[in-house]
Design a protein around this nucleic acid. Structure first.
Ligand SMILES: Nc1ccn([C@H]2C[C@H](O)[C@@H](COP(=O)(O)OP(=O)(O)OP(=O)(O)O)O2)c(=O)n1
Ligand SMILES: [Mg+2]
Ligand SMILES: [Mg+2]
Length: 1255
DNA sequence: ATCCTCCCCTAC
DNA sequence: TAAGGTAGGGGAGGAT
């Protein structure tokens, strides 16, 4: 407000003469006059263009005037900044330029002549007398080139030159050969909005048609009901003229400072790669090598090579940088916003024009926030087209693909297979074709390129092409699609312009990405008095003027509305969703457009028959929460009503730092893998240092080729169809040390037991970040602390029972980790082995053992013997621990899979520095003890131990003595709750959730409807079971046919049974809780693991899982028993349990028995049983499978579908972990049987989308 | 109840 | 050929 007065003054002052109202009117009249001449127009190439000719030009000014007017443009005799869109000049004194005109479009006359000869309006950018780049250079240079890129400035200049020459060539070429498509950026605007413009203009003031005003005005007027169109135009123009000077100055100033600091340093080192700078194709390095070359295995340059070419890496890096930049702006708390002066001036003008007084609405009442979302239009394409005006108006995509979407299929790959898998997951990479057709193999026949299109022009979008789509399918959708290469440096430059421009108005920004941000305009608007749409018009114009790229903006009272508005505004437009109009506006918005609703959720909603926000509004909150979870449900509920409380996040604190690569991973040898881990760890280390953080938790994320996926992927060097796994470990102290991270990561890799040749993706993430502060503490995590712990452990252990001392302090994590002090791996191993062998219990070792094993593995990696090892880490591990294995490889598995190695082992020094073999353990810090550190310390300890502490024999003995008790405890605990992980758990169905979904009929009970919205194929309830069954069978794969048949039989039987004797079991729906069976439960959980054999549920031996027919007998019997309530449960129980079940069984029988699995009734117990079973049996026993199947069948008959769902989920989760095909097949078998039965009985199936990939 | 791990999902 | 990264929200299941 205060500034308003000032604005007036300025108006008067302005030199262009534009300031006078009279001048404005005059210009307007002139414009109209010229328009009359339209009748004789040769074309409308220059529609919206208004030129001013400065000085001597090659085609004379008169000539230019004629050319422009004849082709729909305007000519200004005076330099009315607000009116003139382009200044035509052949040369211009620097002095002149520097001041007022820097931000004007100063263009060479060739722009006019070329455009005419081309028949289209070409982008003025290549014809600029002074390129935007050169003007901005100082600022940008500081920013982008921070470090490694040595030559930023130099390069940029060079680059500019190069690009120009290229452009020229191109231009010429196009002229000769093709007709230029349409327009440059400004033209685009016109073309896109042109019609609308007309309307807007009708208002009256619009007389000025410069493209600028057009762009902004029309949009504003159309879309926004509130703002005044007139204001927009003028605002825009004025802002332009006024701003330029100031903007510039401040630009350079603030830029260098702010950016250099915050942004620049964050930059990704890989940008520099010369190759990428000019995409043209320096790729020499990357290219031309054998496929193996790319493999990261050996390449020392792999990381930089990959990251330098990864658009997503750049995107992420930039996003983080801008967030940090904004955080910094906020912290500076500056109130210097040079851009606002322009707004104030504009506002003053508008007041003058309208005759309104200040007290205007803008001032008083803006009770609610005004949030703006701004996003560059097809960003990469827009930037890329600056150098390729000839492609404007054409469908264009940015991609690495150099051919036209064709590529030689990769020999061992199976594109069809992958396509099917994608279909299951529903990705859009293949385009609509993919989504619509079950499998469209044909699309691959002609266009096979799997290069992704980062961004495509709106022309391409009309044909169905989307960002992220593969080139092949895109070509199929749009054969004329043109491609342009990446130009990462340029994206950075334009991005900088965007951020700097916005930051000149306000720092209330939330960086979303390099081409997008959220801005809280509330303060800015009240301060300057401009209306939201005026501001936006001015801003967009300014950005366009500076960058040559268009942006679209959305305005609303919250983030959600602002984003939706932007979507509505694109391309090159703006839109304000006024509060009173929210419901009307949002009613028809597709739910898919809601932020947070992606492919998956959209499908779930779609299955619920919810397509639009209006549809969604009719779904009760409770249903949404049941279906999607508490928060997600609430969020959906609010979003579809236009409600969004999310604040703009201007300060950003990093919560994690990671580096991952899921491309080009093909290891042949372990040492390659180890090297990669070291390199990646180094990368993480560098990133941590950049943000000055250290972290306590290291997480390893892997993508592992799915067993049924071909070794060669359809996409060159892609990851193909994979399972994803992750494992984390908590360190005692935060670290950013590369070697520590590498060690821990390798340990985790070991724990995951993956064959390195099947690795397809690797990521290392560090979380629980802390400020870098403590200098010394850093390294410690691995080494120092470990040592401390170690020492303590030793001491303590002798004195105290192993684990207690440790336990006491914190319990932060797994208590289990006993403080045990096992110094060496060897010892531990021995110990473990002994115990295992002797006792025959594998369970006993689980928790603690893990570390040791890992450590061994670790040794292997680092040790010289590496070569010995088989490719698979797990194998090597196994080899070492044969003895252990004998007891059951379950043991190994369990150990390995234990969450991070929490082990009891005392933390040992990881760092080499500590290596002294004798290293006596330093006293552990009390803080560290097992608890808090447990996982870490243990892991670390292990590593260090192995490496550096060769032989503490003494320790070992002690350890052995002490460990047992602890181990036992741990084991017991662990047994109870092993953590299952499912790579794909889905969830959807959960128990009641589905039931909750009102959309589906619940055949059975209310609770468990099987289908969740997720299901792709909504299942229609089929009344007649028999028919259904048949269908099911038919539909199923041949493999399963047999099984299904048998299953079918069972079903029938069961059904019969059911009829005969309805289950009167306990609770109508779920029997789980009956007290009777508690016994079994307890047992199961508590007992440590059974020996593998014991675990097997049934005594039967031998049949391979697959085919054995289901024994009628067994099934029947079990069923009968259950039904009748008499029988002891499954046959297997008896066998099973020696330990567990046996006891329980007897009791069970009584009266209402509950359906159980070897005595386990509660889901918890069932899970534990399943875990043990899976862990103990490398290969599933057919009998066991049958037992499970029978159990599930009973549950189904009991209508306890909820439990069925839970059991299946648990199985899926555990088996996923195993990563074992045989088990997978068994699960498939079980699931098929179950689904068939359910279908026959209820007419629908469980929604098991979560295990779809498995099936 | 709350935290932790391991996932999935989403966004650019 | 192709460069399928990365941060954060959130949910399920488990431990406490
Ligand atoms: N799957 C994707 C999505 C985006 N991007 C990159 C290229 C885009 O140009 C940029 C910005 O993403 P936007 O979602 O803003 O998409 P565009 O700017 O391309 O188009 P528009 O914003 O006009 O819809 O991010 C990418 O590489 N891969
Ligand atoms: Mg964009
Ligand atoms: Mg964007």
């Amino acid at each position: 407000m205060a500034s308003r007065g000032r604005g007036k003054d300025k108006l008067k002052k302005s030199e262009d003469g534009w300031e006078e109202w009279g001048g404005y009117m005059k210009a307007k009249q002139e414009k109209l006059r010229q328009q009359y001449a339209k009748n004789g127009l040769k074309s409308e190439i220059f529609k919206g263009i208004s030129i001013y000719v400065n000085g001597y030009t090659k085609p004379s000014s008169d000539e230019l005037k004629r050319m422009v007017i004849e082709n729909g443009g305007m000519y200004q005799h005076y330099l009315y900044k607000l009116q003139v869109t382009h200044i035509i000049a052949t040369s211009m004194a620097n002095s002149k330029i520097s001041k007022d005109l820097k931000h004007m479009k100063i263009v060479k006359p060739e722009w006019i002549t070329d455009s005419i000869s081309c028949g289209k309006l070409l982008s003025y950018i290549p014809y600029q007398l002074f390129t935007a780049q050169s003007r901005l250079q100082s600022g940008i240079g500081g920013f982008s080139v921070p470090k490694s890129s040595i030559s930023t400035e130099e390069d940029s200049e060079v680059k500019t030159t190069v690009s120009k020459s290229q452009i020229n060539q191109y231009r010429n070429f196009t002229e000769d050969v093709e007709v230029c498509p349409d327009s440059d950026l400004s033209d685009e605007d016109d073309s896109i909005l042109g019609n609308q413009f007309e309307e807007g203009e009708s208002d009256g003031n619009l007389s000025d048609n410069n493209n600028l005003s057009e762009m902004f005005v029309r949009r504003g007027s159309e879309e926004n009901g509130s703002a005044k169109d007139n204001n927009h135009e003028q605002a825009v123009k004025r802002s332009l003229s006024l701003k330029k000077d100031r903007i510039k100055s401040q630009y350079s100033e603030s830029r260098s400072l702010d950016q250099s600091n915050s942004v620049s340093n964050l930059e990704s080192p890989y940008k520099l790669d010369p190759s990428k700078a000019l995409n043209v194709s320096n790729t020499g390095t990357s290219k031309g090598h054998s496929p193996a070359k790319m493999a990261k295995a050996g390449d020392s340059n792999f990381l930089s090579e990959f990251y330098g070419n990864s658009r997503l890496h750049h995107l992420s890096t930039w996003g983080a940088e801008w967030k940090a930049y904004v955080t910094k702006l906020q912290s500076e708390n500056s109130d210097n916003f040079p851009g606002r002066d322009k707004l104030r001036e504009f506002h003053q003008e508008s007041l003058l024009r309208t005759g309104e007084s200040e007290s205007h609405a803008s001032v008083r009442g803006r009770p609610e926030r005004v949030i703006m979302h701004i996003d560059m239009d097809c960003f990469f394409v827009s930037v890329g087209l600056l150098d390729r005006p000839d492609l404007r108006g054409k469908p264009v995509g940015v991609t690495h693909s150099k051919n036209k979407g064709m590529s030689a299929p990769i020999p061992g790959s199976d594109p069809h297979f992958e396509m099917q898998q994608w279909h299951l997951k529903g990705k859009k990479k293949l385009g609509d074709v993919y989504e619509k057709l079950p499998v469209d193999l044909q699309s691959f026949d002609t266009f096979t390129s799997m290069a992704e299109i980062a961004s495509c022009s709106y022309e391409a979008r009309k044909a169905g092409v989307k960002n992220g789509m593969f080139m092949g399918p895109a070509k199929k959708l749009c054969p004329e699609l043109q491609t342009i290469p990446y130009n990462f440096e340029k994206y950075q430059e334009i991005s900088t312009i965007l951020y700097d421009t916005v930051a000149s108005y306000t720092h209330d920004i939330e960086a979303v990405s390099c081409d997008e941000m959220l801005v809280d305009c509330t303060d800015l608007l009240s301060d300057t008095g401009v209306t939201p749409l005026d501001f936006t018009s001015i801003l967009r114009q300014e950005i366009y003027t500076k960058s040559g790229c268009t942006a679209s903006t959305g305005l609303g009272s919250n983030v959600l509305l602002a984003k939706l508005a932007t979507r509505n505004a694109k391309p090159n437009g703006q839109y304000y969703v006024e509060s009173y109009d929210v419901l009307e506006f949002i009613k028809d918005v597709s739910v898919r457009d809601l932020p947070g609703v992606g492919w998956s959720m959209n499908r779930k909603l779609s299955n619920m028959n919810v397509k639009t926000c209006g549809d969604l509004q009719s779904v009760p909150l409770s249903t949404l929460q049941k279906e999607f979870g508490s928060k997600t449900g609430q969020s959906l509920y609010n979003s579809c009503r236009g409600i969004d409380d999310r604040p703009i996040k201007m300060e950003n604190e990093r919560k994690s730092v990671s580096a991952e690569i899921n491309y080009g991973i093909r290891f042949q040898k372990e040492h390659e893998c180890v090297k990669f881990f070291n390199d990646l760890s180094e990368e993480v280390h560098n990133r941590l240092q950049k943000v000055k953080r250290k972290g306590k938790v290291v997480t390893l994320k892997l993508k592992v080729r799915r067993e049924d996926a071909p070794k060669e992927t359809a996409k060159f060097m892609g990851h193909g169809i994979c399972n994803s796994l992750s494992r984390s470990i908590t360190l005692p102290l935060a670290t950013d040390d590369a070697s520590c991270i590498a060690k821990e990561s390798l340990m985790l890799l070991h724990a995951l037991k993956v064959d390195v040749t099947d690795l397809r993706g690797i990521g290392i993430q560090v979380t629980r970040l802390e400020a870098e502060a403590g200098i010394k503490s850093d390294k410690s995590a691995c080494g120092h602390q470990s040592i401390l712990n170690f020492t303590v452990a030793q001491k303590t252990s002798p004195d105290k029972p192993a684990g207690k001392p440790i336990q006491s302090p914190n319990k932060s994590r797994s208590v289990k980790t006993l403080p045990t002090m096992v110094p060496k791996m060897n010892d531990i191993d021995v110990f473990l082995q002994r115990s295992s062998v002797q006792k025959g219990e594998r369970g006993a070792f689980k928790g603690d053992n893990v570390p040791e094993i890992d450590s061994n593995a670790y040794k292997d990696f680092y040790g010289e013997d590496t070569e010995k090892r088989s490719s698979s880490l797990s194998q090597s591990l196994v080899e070492k621990h044969r003895i252990t294995l004998m007891s059951g490889h379950t043991l190994v598995d369990e150990l390995s899979r234990r969450k991070t190695a929490k082990g009891f082992l005392p933390p040992l020094p990881t760092l080499p520095s500590f290596t002294s073999p004798e290293s006596t353990p330093s006293p552990p810090e009390s803080g560290f003890l097992p608890f808090s550190t447990r996982s870490n310390s243990s892991a670390t300890a292990i590593c260090s131990t192995l490496d550096f502490l060769p032989s503490p024999s003494q320790i070992d003995q002690e350890v052995l003595k002490e460990l047992p008790p602890d181990i036992r405890r741990q084991i017991e605990q662990e047994i109870k709750s092993k953590q299952p992980d499912t790579s794909k758990s889905s969830t959807i169905i959960h128990d009641s959730q589905e039931a909750g979904c009102s959309y589906w009929p619940d055949p059975v009970t209310t609770d468990m409807i099987t289908r969740s919205p997720e299901d792709d194929t909504p299942i229609v309830a089929l009344p007649s079971p028999s028919q259904i069954d048949l269908d099911c069978l038919n539909a199923l794969p041949k493999e399963l046919q047999d099984e299904l048949k048998s299953a079918y039989k069972h079903q029938t039987t069961q059904a019969d049974m059911q009829h005969k004797s309805p289950t009167k079991l306990a609770s109508p729906s779920k029997s789980k809780k009956s007290p009777l069976f508690k016994v079994p439960k307890g047992r199961a959980t508590k007992k440590r693991k059974l020996s593998p054999k014991k675990l097997s549920f049934s005594n039967k031996k031998s049949k391979s899982i697959e085919q054995k027919e289901v024994d009628h007998d067994t099934v029947l019997i079990s069923i009968e028993d259950d039904v009748s309530g008499i029988g002891p449960r499954l046959t297997e129980n008896a066998s099973f349990d020696n330990e567990n079940v046996a006891e329980a069984q007897p009791e069970t029988k009584p009266v209402a028995e509950e359906i159980n699995l070897c005595g386990a009734v509660h889901i918890k117990d069932v899970r534990n049983l399943l875990k043990e079973w899976l862990n103990s049996c490398p290969v599933p026993q057919e009998e066991d499978v049958e037992v499970i199947t029978n159990y599930l069948s009973q549950l189904i008959l009991d209508k306890n579908l909820e439990l069925v769902d839970l059991v299946l989920k648990a199985l899926n989760r555990y088996i996923h972990k195993l990563n074992n095909n045989v088990w997978r097949n068994s699960l498939r078998h079980i699931v098929n049987n179950t689904q068939c039965l359910i279908h026959s009985l209820h007419g629908s199936q469980l929604n098991i989308q979560y295990m779809k990939t498995l099936l």
